[in-house]
Write a protein that binds this DNA or RNA. Structure first.
Lengths: 249, 249
DNA sequence: CGGATCGTTGAGTTGTATCAAGACGGGTGG
DNA sequence: CCACCCGTCTTGATACAACTCAACGATCCG
């Protein structure tokens, strides 16, 4: 929780300029956004369904998830977010939250007033486009997850989620050479891929037995990226990362 | 296929002004967009995964779907679109298509060049916001479907899809008092809710037996909206329709 | 009338859920 | 510093939702 404001702006600028090259003036406009850094503990709600937030947020440190509950109390996690993401941008134009968002690890969250973002978008159409694009990538990930939940078996879905984490964390420099830290419980993995926790446990064991992953605590190693990718039916196209970025490893 | 250009503009204007009230100048800017109306037959692809389209489209007549295929050839339909929708707006900022889109009935489609839309968005931030919002509503629907596929049983999912169709068609005036025409095969319903066609058939029979729907050909009647809604766990919030719009019936 | 598409039905199979219980591990308080 | 506790992970046994395969009926249309 020792993150500085300038580091947060760096994250945001790096993200937004990863596709659109912004001018110095546009970058300065971003740097001068008022941003309110706030620490969160694990398993805290950041926004809840039904609320009408007046600010969005940048995830500066930690992992968060977006989830919905059915009337029977079952939870579906529809997205995870990693440092550098702005999970809540849709609240800029959709008044009422249709999901809740929560931390899954301790986090540092930078809140930015909608007013400031609207103002920025009005003055700099290219920044508006970059933010819009962020929300479109989120939507693309929803489509991919839906395809997995609807049409792939759980083994493949689990492998797919691990591929996605590795790729997204790699894009923000949070991987080691063939591995990454995944501080997410099996309960959360279950809610994300739409199976029971018992089954997540068994699928993970299968993946380990098949030599597709190795785990030590929260550390996940991928000894053979190509084989995991194949098991997962993973094609990183849907993440819409910049073209020059290596599809990792 | 006798739709006029002015009718297509009307659709677009009605949609975009349903939330944001646009000025006359903004409306005129929309009217003067070059739009190319094209007829499509059933089961034709409009855009395919991997393509880099240079135009988006307005669905003027008919129903379309957005789908993905797994490497094993299984199909997941991740969205349906109804007249008035602009299903392809995300291609404005995501260069490569990560899904394919196809007609499920005969359709009239109005193509609009990206260039013209980018120009419009640059000059009229409120129109940009309205288009952005369209894509956010799509994303919200993805989240709701994912929750259904992951955490609701098939009976409930089928009911939910019917509720959604009724509500969305009602919003564009395409319902009769307690019913609507659903020209979608059981194969397509199966690919949308992530089950087999055999199972779709059985679930529909259950819904009929329970008195939640009545069907005559492609016509679906809903004798008791409240009961269907309850079976579906349906809350129209996620559609983000304008507040004054009645939650139908 | 034949062919194609779509809907329906039955029988056997399988992936995944549920329930229940035990093992592990890290933190807290006595 | 140990005992306890709670959350997490693991394992086994049983149950069920949904799948697959296969065949048959109903339309529609050229």
């Amino acid at each position: 929780m020792t993150l500085s404001h300038s580091a947060a702006y760096d994250l945001m600028n790096r993200k937004l300029t990863s596709i659109f090259s912004l001018s110095d003036k546009e970058k300065q406009a971003i740097q001068s956004l008022p941003i309110q850094l706030t620490p969160f503990r694990t398993d805290q709600d950041i926004v809840r369904v039904g609320e009408r937030p007046s600010r969005s947020f940048l995830l500066a440190e930690g992992f968060t998830c977006v989830y919905k509950l059915t009337s029977e109390g079952r939870r579906q996690i529809v997205a995870f977010h990693v440092p550098g993401d702005m999970p809540d941008l849709h609240s800029l134009h959709l008044k009422v939250m249709d999901t809740s968002m929560a931390t899954v690890t301790p986090c540092t969250i930078g809140f930015i007033a909608h007013e400031a973002l609207h103002d920025l978008c009005g003055r700099y159409p290219r920044i508006a486009a970059a933010l819009w694009r962020e929300t479109l990538v989120d939507a693309s990930i929803f489509r991919e997850w839906m395809t997995g939940i609807g049409r792939r078996e759980s083994y493949s879905r689990m492998a797919h989620l691990l591929c996605e984490f590795f790729t997204r964390l790699d894009a923000v420099g949070l991987t080691q050479d063939h591995g990454f830290t995944l501080p997410i419980t099996q309960v959360e993995l279950a809610d994300a891929i739409g199976v029971s926790t018992v089954h997540v446990n068994r699928v993970l064991q299968e993946l380990r037995a098949d030599g597709l992953i190795q785990t030590v605590g929260a550390q996940v190693n991928i000894p053979d990226w190509e084989r995991l990718k194949e098991a997962a039916d993973f094609d990183p196209l849907y993440l819409h990362l910049r073209q020059d970025a290596p599809a990792c490893l």
